Simulated scan of single mutants.
Amino acid sequence: MTGKLYGLGLGPGDPELLTLKAHRILTSCPVVAYPAPDTGPSFARQIAADYITSAQLEVPIIVPMRVERFPAQDVYDQAAETLSRHLDAGSDVAVLCEGDPFFYGSFMYLFERLAGHYPTEVVPGVSSMMAAAAGLGRPLAARNDVLSVLPGPLDDDQLQRGIEAAGALAIIKIGRHFARIKALIERMGLVAQAGYVERVSLAEERLMPLAELTEDRAPYFSMILIYKGEERWHPAISQALGSGV
Rank of each mutant, 00 (worst) to 15 (best):
R199T: 05
Y227F: 08
L147Y: 13
G125W: 08
S148R: 14
H234G: 04
A80Y: 03
E205P: 14
R113Q: 11
L150N: 02
G3Y: 04
L5I: 02
S42L: 00
T82V: 15
G105C: 10
Q46T: 11
L159R: 06
G195W: 04
H234N: 13
E215C: 06
A131G: 13
E215N: 11
V146A: 14
L154K: 11
L26W: 01
M1T: 14
R199M: 05
P30M: 00
L17W: 03
P37G: 05
L110D: 09
A134P: 10
A183V: 07
A170N: 05
I47G: 09
C29R: 01
E215G: 11
H117C: 12
A240P: 03
S201Y: 03
A22F: 09
I25Y: 13
Y76T: 00
L154I: 13
S54I: 13
Y51E: 13
R143V: 06
D88S: 10
G13F: 00
I226A: 06
H23F: 14
A240F: 13
A22D: 06
M130Y: 12
S238W: 08
G13A: 00
P71L: 02
M130N: 12
S84Y: 07
T19K: 09
I62V: 15
V146P: 03
P71T: 02
R24L: 08
V146C: 13
A79V: 01
Q56Y: 07
P37H: 01
V146G: 10
S243Q: 15
F43Q: 09
S91P: 04
G137K: 09
A80Q: 07
V95C: 08
A33F: 02
E231Q: 15
P41M: 00
F221N: 07
S106H: 08
H117I: 11
L210R: 05
L202D: 06
A36Q: 15
A133T: 06
V149Y: 13
V63Y: 05
G162S: 02
P30S: 00
G189W: 09
Q193Y: 12
P64T: 00
R187L: 04
V197S: 06
G167N: 15
V31K: 01
F43C: 07
V93F: 02
W233V: 07
T39K: 15
R187W: 05
Q56C: 12
I174R: 08
R199W: 11
A170I: 05
A236C: 09
L213I: 14
T27V: 10
E204I: 09
S238A: 15
G152H: 06
T214G: 10
T82Y: 03
A218Y: 05
P12H: 00
N144C: 10
H23Q: 14
L17F: 04
L83A: 06
S106L: 08
D14Q: 01
E98T: 06
S106E: 06
L114C: 01
L26N: 02
C29I: 01
A44P: 10
R161S: 13
P235N: 10
V67K: 14
V75D: 02
E204V: 14
M223Q: 08
F43S: 10
T120K: 01
K4G: 05
L83P: 03
L147A: 11
L213T: 08
E68I: 12
I52C: 07
E68K: 15
G162I: 07
A194F: 01
